[in-house]
Amino acid sequence: MRNAHSSPPIVQAHGLWKRFGALTVLKGVDLEVAEKQLVFIIGPSGSGKSTLLRCLNRLETPDDGAITIDGINLLSPKTDINKARQRIGMVFQSFNLYPHMTARQNVTLALRKVLGRGKEEADIAARHALDRVGLGERMDHFPAQLSGGQQQRVAIARAIALEPRVMLFDEPTSALDPELVGGVLSVMRELRESGMTMVVVSHEMAFARAAADTVIFMADGEKLEEGPPAQIFEQPQHERTRSFIRQIDRH
């Protein structure tokens, strides 16, 4: 069993507000993630879950609130955001692999340009990361030559090669054909077992039941409910959580 309460949370976000014009997407959301935990965020579209995740990598800057990740104040103007982002891996719904680079080059770009590694050293790290996601054999393929599931696994390799402290997943399987989802989920499960701290926004409820430490339900920019998967899925307190889970389960 993980000792979730012995050390301070590695991700601490407090009172996050975010507006896009007239629309308020986050209304004072708090989030804490302890080291080696997997926090799973669910909720209807437009609930603000993706925006919350993007704030954690400062791809969006919240209008108000505080974010500390691994002891670094993410919102301070003094923080070197590029350096901070090395410790926060991000995986996107649409993979966002660089189409003009091979799988290996996709992985080594940041290793070389951000961490300043030499070519050989970066290649070794890339091979290791791609092996981990089961694509060591496809190193020199371009994204267009890979299936969607393989592309997403390369994207995960691109993030883990930087040895991040936290991994953020933004609906990593939503753009995939059903038969390709399993490969990506098993890579995520392997990551979790190796002790990676993870925040996942997704609709894969079975995966959440099996792998999450904490499940958060969000709606309308607010966190409505939070607890272990058994509690959220079997005895949801909130009416909106109940109806959301009923809808998802029907599929």
Binding site: N96, A110, A155
Partner: peptide, 29 residues
């Protein structure tokens, strides 16, 4: 696509590096 910039920035590449290694090569092509 915007996602290209976001992916590059999420790995810690600076804005200039993102332009030079990710955006401009695709733009030219």
């Amino acid at each position: 696509p915007r996602g290209q910039t976001e992916a590059a920035r999420s790995t810690g590449l600076s804005q200039a590096q993102t332009l030079a290694f990710v955006v401009l090569p695709q733009a030219v092509r």
